[in-house]
Write a protein that binds this DNA or RNA. Structure first.
Lengths: 339, 339
DNA sequence: GCTTTTTGTTGACTCGAGTAGATCCCAGTG
DNA sequence: CACTGGGATCTACTCGAGTCAACAAAAAGC
C-alpha cells in the first residue's frame, strides 16, 4: 500500500493535496478547475478530476478573491428586509445576482442613516464588487463613502443623484394614473397619505397626485405625512379622516401605508370603497390579499432588480452613470370602487 | 473629485502603503489595526493611525479571510425571502449576525431541493463560517453536503435531525393552545389548514390540533393540505368550506395560509369570526394588520435567530449538536371571536 | 560599569490559488 | 542524426494581511 503517497490531509483539502494525489503540479489543477488559460491533456484532466472527486476538493474562495480582486459578491442595503416591499426587492436582487454567479450580502439600515453608512463601509471593506443601495434616505456624502473603487447603484430612489447609477420608476406618472382613476370614479376630494423622504424635496408621487387634480380642475385635497410602513399609514389615515374636508378617496404612497390606512378607516366605522376609496403604490403581494384587495400602481420589481444588478456587473461597467426609469402599471382591484 | 495627499498610491491602498507613509514596517501596521498580538509605542501608533486616516486605508477582507480561515460571514438559506415570515426571520438573523460582526449571505431556495443543495454548495465554497438552514424540506443527505468542516443549524424545522444543531418552537404545544382557545369559544367542528412538509411525518401542529380535540372529547374536524403561503391557504380554505362537515372554526398552520383562508371565506360570502372563527401560527406582522386581525400563535423569532447564530459562532462551537425548542405564546386578536 | 530584563520594531514566512515564463518531451523534418 | 516546433507540464512569483523569531535599543538590576 502506498500510504505515504495517498496520504489523506487533515485540514481542508487544498490544491496542493489534489496535485500530490493526482501526481501533477498545482498549476495543472488550477487549469483543470478553471478551464484555465492553458490546455491540459485529456488523460491528465481525468486524473485530476478523479482526485478532486475523491478528496472532495473545493477551491478556497478567499484565496481566489485575493488573487482576482473580486469575490463575486454584491451588497444590498435596504431599510427593512421584513417590510414586504423591500423583501420582494431583495428577493429579486438576489435572484438577478445569482443568475450571474454573484452572491448577495444583505444588510438592513433600519432607516437609520448612521447604520446605513456603517453597513456601506463594512461592505466596502469586504471588497464586494458592487452595492445596491435601496434606501429612502439619501445624503450626498455617500458618494465619498463609496470612493471611486466600488461600483454602486441606487435602487428605487425618489430622486436621481448625480454621479450615481440609478434605477427607479416614474413615480409622477404612476401616481397620476392612480389619482386619475379615482377621479374617474367621480371623487372630487382626494387625499394623499405620503411617506416621509429624507430630503424634503417633493416626491414624484406627491407631484403626480397634485397634477392629476389640477388637470381635472379639482381642489388639492388634504395631505398627511407618515412613515411608508403600516403604522405610518395608520397614523396618516387617522389625520386624514379628522380633516375638515374629509376626502372620499385617498391615494397612499405605498401598499404598506394603504394597509395601515385601511385599518384606520375600519376603526372609524367606515367602509372601503363605499365610504372611502383607496388606491396605492408598489404592487406588492399584500395588496392582492388585503381586504378589500388594493388597486395599486405596480412597479416592475423584477426588471428593476435585473437592471440594477446588470449596471453593477454588466459589460457597461465603466461607462458613465446611467439612470433608468421604468414605467408603472395600474393594477385594478376593489379598493377603488371597481367591482 | 478630490485631489488628496502627495503620497496617494494609484490602486487600492494596502498595508504596505501605510507602512511606507508612516515610516514603519508592515507588521506594526497590522498590530495597530488589530490591537495586534504585540504592543506598539503610543507615538508610533499615532503616526500609523494618521497614515491610515490620510491614505484612507481599509484592510483587504479577502486577504484577512485567507490568513485567518474565516471571513466573518454566515449563510442563510430560506425558501422565499419575499414571504413575510421568512423575511422576518431573515431580518432577525441578519441583526443577530451583525451584532457579532458577521455579515449575512442570503439565498433563496424557492422550495426547491436542488436549488437548496446548489446554494449550500456555493456557501460552503465561499468558506462561510456557518449556515443557517431554514427550510421546510429536509433530506438526510444534506449532512454530507456540509461535511465536517462547516457548521450549520436548522432553523424552524419541523423535526429534529440527528447530527444537526437545531432551533425551533414547540409546534405541538402552540397548536394546542390555539385550538383549545377556539374550543373555549364553543366551537365543536374545528378544521385544520395544514402546510405541506417534505417528509411526510406528521407535523407538530397537526398533532397539537388533533390532541386538543381529542382531549376535549370532540371529533377530529376536516383537514386540508396546501402550501404554507397565501395561495395554499386560499385553496385549502375552499376545500374546507366545501367539506360535508363544514367547520365553524379553522386553525391554519401559518399566518400566510390564514390570510389566504380569510379570502376564501369572504368570497364564500361568510364572515370572520361570526360564521367561521380563525386562528393561525407564526405571529408575523401581517396577522396584526389583516382584517379581521388574526389571533395567532407567536413564535419568538428574534430569540430563535439569536440562538441559531450563537450556535454557529458562540463558544460552544465544538460541542455536540444542540436542539433548542422555544415556547410559543397565544396572541389574541379578533379573528377567533374575541372582542 | 556591565549584565539582565523589558520594550519596540522588523524581516520573513504563511495562508491558497492564478498564471507567466521556463522547461521538458516527443514527433516531424532536413 | 541533430534540430526544431509545439504541446504538456512545472517552477516560482504574486495577491494582502497575520504573526513569530530575531534583533536593536532602552531600562532596570547588582
Amino acid at each position: 500500500m502506498t500510504t505515504s503517497a495517498v496520504h489523506t490531509p487533515r485540514g481542508p483539502v487544498t490544491r496542493k493535496d489534489v496535485a500530490r494525489y493526482a501526481g501533477v503540479s498545482t498549476a495543472v489543477v488550477s487549469y483543470v478547475v478553471n478551464g484555465g488559460p492553458k490546455k491540459v491533456a485529456p488523460a491528465t484532466e481525468a486524473k485530476v478530476q478523479e482526485a478532486i472527486r475523491i478528496l472532495g476538493y473545493r477551491p478556497n474562495a478567499a484565496a481566489r478573491a485575493l488573487k482576482m480582486g473580486s469575490n463575486q459578491t454584491l451588497g444590498l442595503v435596504i431599510p427593512d428586509s421584513s417590510n414586504p416591499f423591500w423583501a420582494l426587492l431583495g428577493h429579486a436582487v438576489e435572484v438577478a445576482a445569482a443568475e450571474r454567479g454573484y452572491a448577495l450580502l444583505l444588510t438592513n439600515s433600519d432607516n437609520n442613516l448612521d447604520s446605513e453608512r456603517r453597513h456601506i463601509r463594512n461592505l466596502a471593506d469586504r471588497q464586494v464588487d458592487g452595492v445596491v443601495l435601496a434606501s429612502v434616505m439619501f445624503e450626498p456624502d455617500l458618494l465619498e463613502l463609496f470612493g471611486t473603487e466600488i461600483r454602486s447603484v441606487l435602487l428605487n430612489h425618489a430622486s436621481v443623484a448625480p454621479g450615481f447609477n440609478s434605477v427607479g420608476v416614474d413615480l409622477e406618472a404612476g401616481a397620476r394614473l392612480a389619482v386619475e382613476h379615482l377621479i374617474g370614479h367621480g371623487h372630487t376630494t382626494i387625499g394623499l397619505a405620503m411617506g416621509i423622504t429624507a430630503d424634503n424635496e417633493a416626491d414624484g408621487r406627491e407631484e403626480g397626485w397634485q397634477r392629476a387634480l389640477e388637470a381635472a380642475g379639482l381642489p388639492v385635497g388634504p395631505l398627511a405625512r407618515g412613515g411608508f410602513d403600516r403604522p405610518g399609514g395608520y397614523a396618516a389615515g387617522q389625520r386624514l379622516l379628522a380633516a375638515d374636508n374629509r376626502p372620499t378617496a385617498i391615494f397612499a404612497s405605498s401598499d404598506m401605508q394603504a394597509i395601515g390606512l385601511l385599518r384606520a378607516i375600519r376603526e372609524a366605522g367606515l367602509s372601503v370603497p363605499d365610504d372611502i376609496a383607496v388606491a396605492s403604490f408598489d404592487g406588492s403581494i399584500e395588496a392582492e390579499y388585503s381586504w378589500p384587495a388594493l388597486t395599486t400602481v405596480e412597479q416592475p420589481v423584477w426588471e428593476m432588480a435585473e437592471a440594477a444588478v446588470s449596471a453593477l456587473v454588466g459589460e457597461n461597467r465603466n461607462e458613465p452613470p446611467q439612470h433608468r426609469v421604468f414605467p408603472t402599471q395600474l393594477r385594478i382591484r376593489q379598493s377603488c370602487g371597481c367591482p
